[in-house]
Nucleic acid binder design. Structure first.
Lengths: 138, 138
DNA sequence: ATTATAATTTGCCAAATGGCAAAAGTCAAT
DNA sequence: ATTGACTTTTGCCATTTGGCAAATTATAAT
């Protein structure tokens, strides 16, 4: 056969991260359209709670972890708050440590890639949340 | 002064629940417009994650509890999963028990009211989530 | 270099969210 | 009954989300 065989370390340019999952594959396992995933990836769209929930497991995250990373939950609300302390000592991020600890090597790399992506999304969302106050409250 | 004095047990008709908070008051403390809160209340709108986060504290909920009640997180993901067992024995809902235990009487009544409301919202959301599959996945 | 196949991006659009302002109830005092 | 101060509802609309289908771009085998 010709054509690209499969799964050769996809490069998500905007995030400068190499991950072993294609958008299509994530689309299939999560049920979210690949086009939308692509736009989320490069910050053109912000995933709603429903979408976030769909992609959590396929990405190797606990739901609340992903919600926290995306800025929808504050850290002390999620299981991230009480992550294993033995990993913290060597400067490794607790989120990453916890997730990596019980995931396959491929998933581990995928997680790191997506992690970077989500943090940038989280920043925009949080920024947006802490605006002076665009709210009504009359 | 004349006019309605204030806060006399507002009745949220569609949910058949009496609560001591007006939409306006919740609007002020949460920063969400009262019109939108009203529509959420009677199921015409579904609160996004941002909105849910804003109203959690004013309602006496932990963020992840409210997310779970709204169907955005599955139960085992949130702190609801490990709620105090001593309250469970007498048939009292653990969610309610946990929240009521450390809130003022007024808030306690408010919480019960909103709890009912959110459960119905949660049902619609979950139903929508478990559809055969409206997803892409090509 | 060409080509076949798989991956991402873009254009377009339907549906939903959420705010503001005006309208429509409520209730208590006159 | 009318007024006055409140609360909720409605109409309208700007913005966002997210899917589909058609480009476009990348990769690997020829």
């Amino acid at each position: 056969m010709n054509g690209s065989t499969r799964n050769l370390g996809l490069l998500i340019k905007r995030q400068r991260v190499t991950i072993p999952l294609t958008l299509r594959e994530l689309a299939v396992t999560s049920g979210v359209s690949s086009s939308h995933l692509g736009r989320i990836e490069r910050g053109e769209r912000f995933p709603s709670a429903h979408i976030l929930r769909r992609i959590a497991k396929p990405l190797g995250f606990e739901e609340d972890e992903l919600f926290t990373l995306a800025g929808y939950l504050s850290p002390q609300s999620s299981s991230i708050a009480e992550s294993h302390p033995q990993y913290v000592s060597n400067g490794l991020d607790p989120y990453v440590a916890r997730v990596l600890a019980h995931e396959s090597p491929e998933t581990q790399r995928a997680v790191i890639g997506i992690l970077t992506m989500l943090k940038s999304i989280a920043r925009s969302i949080t920024r947006e949340d802490n605006r002076p106050n665009g709210a009504t409250a009359e």
